[in-house]
Design a protein around this nucleic acid. Structure first.
Lengths: 216, 216
DNA sequence: GTCTATATTTCGATAGAC
DNA sequence: GTCTATCGAAATATAGAC
């Protein structure tokens, strides 16, 4: 985006502190929501005085906006696997794997995004109308192509995408509920694999694209 | 639950005002989250002075708790269709229909629940550990029975339930995103039907339980 | 049961010394 | 760039007249 900046000592300090603050903010926003989060809590978690947050991010909203943008960028890159795939088994399968892995590694970001959208997307509405809209149109065309080539059933591409988002993000957004139902324990390595396999099996078979996956 | 109260004038007024406040609170909590909601906003939406809210509900948290309990009860009743069904096509199909209809009619409640769980269920953790846990165990056994009877594929019942919750609630919780991608328009009658059919088709076929649904 | 006025707390943001 | 002290706004909750 911006031109690479000189690695002056001041810039290094700025970069490190911004990363520290953003990481703490993501956690606090995820746990308390935008309204419930306080600059004091974020400062405490980052180990900085509250005033320093306002030095790096003028307002609470500006800080929040950066956090939301972060998870969105991560998701966008996860869709790269989609494009050059020869068919739905590879493309959608890999997309599910990638999204599930993000739910596992970045549950906070997913929650912040969910909260933002649930409240009417007050700060990232423009992203929904531009970037996400274009992204969705593009992927729908890929899916439609697979349908036309007979590689999967005739399914509404948009509703399929919603199902992919819903099921994968559920493991992040509702992670606490899942953990509680799992006896209060986080999902083990084996359970995460079972989750991924269940999602892939049901959806891939559900859209009639199980060539080579039978019996797994 | 409680014994039926005498229909004194005072009780009638109380009942009506509580309903009015709860309805306004559900909307405000859904739009702003617990932290972002204010008693003033809820009072304005209910058309009452702020002090009256505190007369009926001592604290903001008590009011919020009632709202969360409401949607939970609605969902519990939606699962009645599950139990006496002869197999997954009828049982899960009817459950999807019921949950989708709730997402359409009560999107606010769904959002409040999602927000509550995302933030670690601070006020309804006990429900997760008791009622929801028992409910999940019971339905998992029903699903397992269907598997043993050869009426559907061998799928992990819990992950299947998660997928049902995720996909149906997504249409409420992410309704704003879906509307935006739909050109800023709410889903039409026809689009809601298409959504239901897509979900049912993919999941029922995905679990190998499509007897009599082929080609629909 | 209703409603105005207000007590009390907390939060976002800033001033200003270092 | 850091940090203490503090301002001003806004929120929850209550007091007390009606």
């Amino acid at each position: 985006m911006t031109a690479p900046e000189r690695l002056s000592k001041r810039n290094v300090i700025r970069q490190e502190n911004e990363r520290l603050i953003l990481s703490a903010a993501e956690k606090v926003f995820a746990e308390a929501g935008f309204g419930g989060a306080t600059m004091q809590l974020i400062a405490d978690m980052a180990g900085l005085p509250k005033a320093n947050l306002h030095y790096y991010f003028a307002t609470k909203e500006e800080l929040y906006r950066k956090v939301v943008q972060n998870i969105f960028e991560i998701w966008l890159h996860a869709a790269d696997v989609f494009d050059n795939a020869p068919g739905p088994v590879e493309g959608i399968g890999a997309y599910i794997d990638a999204k599930m892995e993000i739910s596992r590694r970045h549950p906070e970001g997913s929650k912040v995004w969910a909260s933002e959208v649930m409240h009417g997307a007050p700060v990232i509405q423009d992203y929904l109308e531009t970037t996400l809209r274009d992204w969705t149109t593009g992927r729908s065309q890929v899916i439609q192509k697979w349908i036309d080539e007979g590689k999967m059933d005739r399914i509404d591409p948009e509703h399929l995408l919603y199902m992919l988002w819903a099921t994968t993000q559920h493991y992040a957004d509702f992670g606490h509920q899942i953990e509680t139902l799992n006896g209060g324990r986080r999902l083990s390595e084996k359970q995460w694999k079972a989750a991924k396999d269940s999602v892939k099996q049901i959806i891939l078979r559900g859209i009639g694209a199980t060539d080579g996956l039978q019996g797994r």
